[in-house]
Computed example of a mutant assay.
Amino acid sequence: MAEARVGVKVSDDRQTVTIEIGSTAGPSHPVGLDLKQLTKVIQLLGEARSRMVEGSRKLPLDGKTVETVIEPPWYVQVASIDGSLLAFDHPSYGPLGFALPRQDVVRIVRILNEHLALPAGHPDKPS
C-alpha cells in the first residue's frame, strides 16, 4: 500500500472543514465538508475500523492512555439486553452509545460506590 498524506483544516468560521488525502508521490484534491458531512465520514470510518478489528482479541484498557472528555452530555437507561445503555456526546466522534451487560453494570456501580465513600476531593482512587 502506498504511503499517504492526510491534511485537515477547519475554516476560520468553523462552519466547514477541508480534507486532503493523497499519495505522497502525487497530487491530492481537497474536499470541503460541513459538520453533517464530516460527522457522516467519521461514522463511515468508524464502521470501517470496526470491520477491520472484527474477530480480534479485545485488549484491556487498564494502564492505557485514552482521550478524556470532561463533562460530556450523557444519558443512561435500562437496556433491553439485561443491562444498561450508556450514551454520551463525544466532541470528536459525536453521540456514542454502549450496551453494558448486567455484570459490567454491577462492577461499575461497585467502583463508583467506592469512589463516593471517599472524602470529597480525595486524591487517591480506590483499587
Results as ranks from 00 to 15, higher is better:
24 T>P: 02
117 A>Q: 12
113 N>V: 10
53 V>W: 05
39 T>D: 08
70 I>E: 10
124 D>K: 09
80 S>E: 15
33 L>M: 05
115 H>Y: 14
120 A>G: 09
28 S>H: 03
90 H>D: 11
98 F>C: 03
59 L>P: 01
103 Q>E: 14
21 I>S: 06
124 D>T: 01
101 P>C: 13
85 L>G: 09
66 V>H: 04
74 W>F: 14
95 P>C: 14
42 I>M: 06
87 A>G: 11
17 V>N: 02
43 Q>I: 03
92 S>N: 15
53 V>S: 05
82 D>A: 15
24 T>W: 07
48 A>V: 03
22 G>Q: 06
112 L>A: 11
34 D>N: 08
87 A>Y: 07
49 R>C: 06
110 R>M: 04
88 F>N: 07
57 R>Y: 00
75 Y>I: 12
87 A>T: 11
81 I>P: 08
124 D>R: 09
59 L>E: 09
41 V>R: 01
55 G>H: 03
31 V>M: 07
15 Q>T: 13
68 T>L: 06
8 V>G: 03
52 M>T: 03
9 K>M: 15
54 E>N: 10
66 V>M: 05
3 E>M: 13
31 V>Q: 05
34 D>R: 05
57 R>E: 04
108 I>H: 07
24 T>Y: 03
99 A>N: 12
33 L>I: 09
81 I>V: 15
75 Y>L: 14
55 G>T: 07
109 V>P: 01
59 L>W: 00
63 G>W: 02
112 L>V: 11
71 E>C: 06
39 T>A: 12
83 G>S: 03
65 T>A: 08
66 V>I: 08
60 P>V: 10
125 K>Y: 12
92 S>D: 13
116 L>S: 12
23 S>K: 10
56 S>D: 09
26 G>L: 02
64 K>P: 01
28 S>C: 09
70 I>D: 10
24 T>H: 07
52 M>R: 02
80 S>R: 15
102 R>A: 10
10 V>N: 08
30 P>G: 03
36 K>D: 12
77 Q>I: 10
10 V>Q: 10
105 V>M: 06
109 V>C: 09
39 T>F: 05
99 A>Q: 08
17 V>R: 02
37 Q>K: 08
52 M>W: 09
40 K>Y: 05
34 D>E: 06
92 S>Q: 14
99 A>C: 13
87 A>F: 09
57 R>A: 09
7 G>L: 09
120 A>L: 06
94 G>P: 03
64 K>G: 00
28 S>V: 03
95 P>H: 13
64 K>H: 05
126 P>I: 06
41 V>I: 07
85 L>V: 14
15 Q>P: 06
67 E>K: 02
66 V>Y: 01
48 A>P: 00
45 L>S: 04
122 H>A: 12
25 A>Q: 13
102 R>Y: 04
4 A>F: 15
119 P>E: 02
107 R>D: 11
79 A>I: 03
42 I>S: 01
45 L>K: 03
58 K>S: 13
31 V>F: 01
61 L>M: 14
34 D>H: 08
80 S>H: 15
108 I>P: 01
